[in-house]
Simulated scan of single mutants.
Amino acid sequence: MAVSFGLTETFKNVFGGGKERVRIFFAPGRVNLIGEHTDYNGGHVLPCALAIGTYALVRQTDEPFVRFYSQNFPETGVITVSYGDLSYRREHGWANYPKGILAAFQALRPLETGLDILYYGTIPNGAGLSSSASIELVTAVMLNELFRRGLDQLELVKMSQNVENKYVGVNCGIMDQFAVGMGKQDCAILLNCQTLEHRYLPLVLDDCAIVIANTNKKRGLADSAYNERRATCEA
């Protein structure tokens, strides 16, 4: 793919060369067709995964730290974190999402190598298409594969939701992570958010299309009244 070739070149420019091979992972974004704000109320939703999403290029290293870089936020430069301090830091911005996943894996069992990771998202930033869940899941799948942890996909979905709830501080429901982690091509997911019972419904569009309008009004849940809305519903 042309996009992966370009990212490989960027990876080398950012992190330098190295004999360790670079691996590429991808997680989609999602759009919800029916059921707004019903996921954290234990209702039904009908999301589907999208072709756009988040790429992660990674190389294992012999260093005791992890270096993050996002092609979407080049102004932040390379963010370096040690395994000894994976706490949330507001100034790390976008990198807190993969950092949270890293911390969750580290808590289960220490990770044996350092990492260089480059992210590139094709989801418009803040467009409400679950870019945060996408970067969480691509990181979780990547770590699960690289370090052979053997967690199943639903465990990774739940871990990612937990990171967003307790590490990032957004009290979201399960829908975003579930749709990103469990989505299938040409299917929507009818999901009961209370029980996680779900079934796949055919969504073959043929000559039709799902039109998603990007208004350029950013929808950042961490900076919005989302948690307040959920607390009101629970009350």
Rank of each mutant, 00 (worst) to 15 (best):
G93C: 09
A104H: 07
G93Q: 12
P98C: 14
Q71N: 02
P124G: 12
I135K: 09
I101L: 13
T76L: 10
P124V: 04
F73T: 04
G114A: 02
A103M: 03
Y55G: 06
F68M: 06
E112R: 15
G84A: 11
G93M: 02
R67K: 15
R90K: 15
Y69M: 02
Y69R: 02
I135G: 13
Y88K: 11
S87K: 10
F73H: 10
P64H: 06
D62I: 01
G128D: 12
T61N: 14
G84V: 03
V78R: 01
T80H: 08
L102S: 09
T61V: 07
T76Y: 00
G114N: 08
R67F: 01
R59N: 08
I135T: 15
Y97N: 09
T76N: 15
E112L: 03
I117S: 04
L111N: 07
S82K: 07
T122K: 06
Y97A: 08
E112A: 14
A107Q: 10
G84Y: 03
P110Y: 13
A133G: 12
A103L: 06
F68N: 07
A104G: 06
S132D: 14
A56R: 06
S87N: 14
D85H: 13
Y69D: 10
Y55Q: 03
V58H: 03
T122H: 12
I123W: 06
S132G: 09
G100H: 10
L129H: 09
Y69W: 02
E75A: 11
F105G: 03
T122N: 01
A56P: 11
L129V: 12
E136G: 08
T76F: 06
S87W: 07
L102V: 02
P74K: 01
R90Q: 14
N96W: 06
R89I: 03
K99I: 15
S131I: 14
I123D: 05
L118P: 10
Y83L: 01
R109F: 14
L137N: 04
A104F: 10
S134Q: 06
V81M: 01
A104T: 05
F65Q: 05
A56M: 12
E63T: 10
Y120G: 05
F68V: 03
R89C: 07
D85F: 08
Q106I: 00
Y88G: 09
L57M: 15
P64A: 00
L111Y: 12
I123T: 02
V58C: 15
A107I: 07
R89A: 13
A104Q: 11
V78F: 00
N96L: 12
L129N: 02
G114L: 15
I123E: 02
T61G: 14
R67D: 14
E112W: 05
T76R: 14
V81S: 12
D85M: 02
T76S: 05
D62L: 11
A133T: 01
G93E: 13
F65V: 08
Y83R: 08
L118H: 10
F68H: 00
S130Y: 04
T113N: 13
A127I: 07
R59P: 03
Y83Q: 01
L111M: 12
E91N: 09
T122S: 15
R109D: 08
A56D: 01
V78Y: 00
R59A: 11
L129G: 03
P124A: 07
D62M: 00
E75W: 02
Q106A: 10
S130F: 08
A103G: 14
P74A: 01
